[in-house]
């Protein structure tokens, strides 16, 4: 017999990681019997520092996470990692390989790593990623790092989900810095340039600093117009360890700046708003598919032959959702 979710919740509060694992699986499978418990977990969480880490594929995110976690552990803080990789758009399956870069952390009891697949989610996050964060938060983890899928230009949801967003850029993609500056580079609270052991990394750092100086996102100001946070560029090397401690100091400072200002409160509200909309959207989508799946094939047939238009058909389908 499966253990009731409420019982897993009691175990979770004592730091039981088996319970954490199982609750995450139930959250991912949208188990209706677990929703109430997940609501309780949400209310009991809110203590951990949620750090988002994003960047293009191959920019060194997973390796950086591995280094970062080892370094944070030296201060005794417990660290959770949610590592997200894409699901296949065809089979729905996935290969989750972020753990391969984090093998040095597996035997540390103060570290928990969970891989998640996007399962049709398009913003760079997995649908249940934030629920998994709540679960780890409740289990007593101090810092929770969400590593997004390797992103393109537009997957900026992480900024609406984390307290501190770090965007990783690798050297050698100089032209891409230009190309993507209107998208993902805007969401950074901290810019990280990885692979700084490489000679061309200075140029990437300069490019980013120049871009920031041009005023795209120069600083966050409080009500009296005093800058609370100026977006820094930190160079790191996961190879040599250079810059990792500085990155942690910067990350902690960002947390501090937000905890002590109204901006932090604003950000928490934005996260709550995003989360509520996302959850409602998922519920709506699921109900839509549940209540229309039988009729859709007949409609699709007509639409593909241009006997019916998608606007009229959608209107009709939406009118039929059971609430």
């Amino acid at each position: 017999m499966p253990t009731p979710s409420a019982e897993l919740f009691s175990r979770l509060k004592t730091g039981d990681l088996r319970a954490a694992s199982r609750l995450m699986s139930r959250a991912e499978s949208h188990d209706p019997a677990t929703i109430a418990t997940l609501g309780e977990i949400y209310k009991s969480a809110g203590r951990a520092h949620i750090v988002g880490l994003t960047g293009v594929p191959g920019s060194g995110k997973s390796t950086l996470v591995s280094r970062l976690v080892s370094e944070i552990r030296k201060s005794g803080r417990k660290v959770g990692v949610i590592a997200i990789d894409p699901s296949s758009p065809f089979s729905g399956g996935s290969i989750l390989g972020d753990r391969i870069r984090m093998t040095n952390l597996v035997l540390d009891e103060g570290v928990y790593i969970r891989s998640m697949a996007t399962r049709g989610s398009t913003g760079g996050l997995a649908k249940s990623a934030l629920t998994a964060v709540d679960i780890l938060d409740t289990a007593g983890f101090d810092v929770i790092i969400i590593e997004t899928v390797g992103v393109g230009q537009d997957e900026v949801e992480i900024a609406r989900a984390s307290h501190t967003t770090m965007v990783v850029s690798a050297p050698g993609l100089g032209d891409d810095v230009q190309a993507i500056k209107a998208g993902i580079l805007e969401i950074a609270d901290i810019h990280v340039v990885s692979k700084c052991d490489r000679p061309d990394s200075n140029r990437t750092i300069t490019d980013l600093k120049t871009m920031l100086a041009m005023g795209i996102n120069i600083s966050i100001k409080d009500q009296s117009n005093k800058p609370v946070w100026q977006v820094p560029v930190v160079g790191t090397s996961s190879e040599t360890g250079e810059g990792i401690d500085k990155l942690i100091t910067t990350m902690d400072k960002h947390r501090e700046a937000h905890l002590t200002s109204e901006l932090g409160e604003e950000r928490l509200k934005r996260i709550a708003e995003y989360r509520t909309f996302k959850t409602a959207e998922d519920l709506l989508r699921n109900r839509f598919f549940d209540s229309t799946s039988e009729r859709i094939s007949a409609l699709v047939e007509k639409i593909s032959k241009r006997e019916l238009d998608p606007f009229t058909a959608s209107d009709e389908l939406l009118g039929n959702i059971a609430f």
């Binding site: 694992s21 995450m24 089979s91 996935s94 290969i95 391969i100 969970r114 891989s115």
Partner: peptide
């Protein structure tokens, strides 16, 4: 397995039994 719609977590080479069991538990 991916093509059959499963989520596959791969550990990489040269793992120890304890590493594998820990990973299996965390990944449920």
């Amino acid at each position: 397995l991916r093509d059959a719609g499963m989520d596959v977590i791969y550990t990489g080479l040269h793992r120890t039994p304890l590493e594998v069991v820990n990973a299996a538990i965390q990944e449920d």
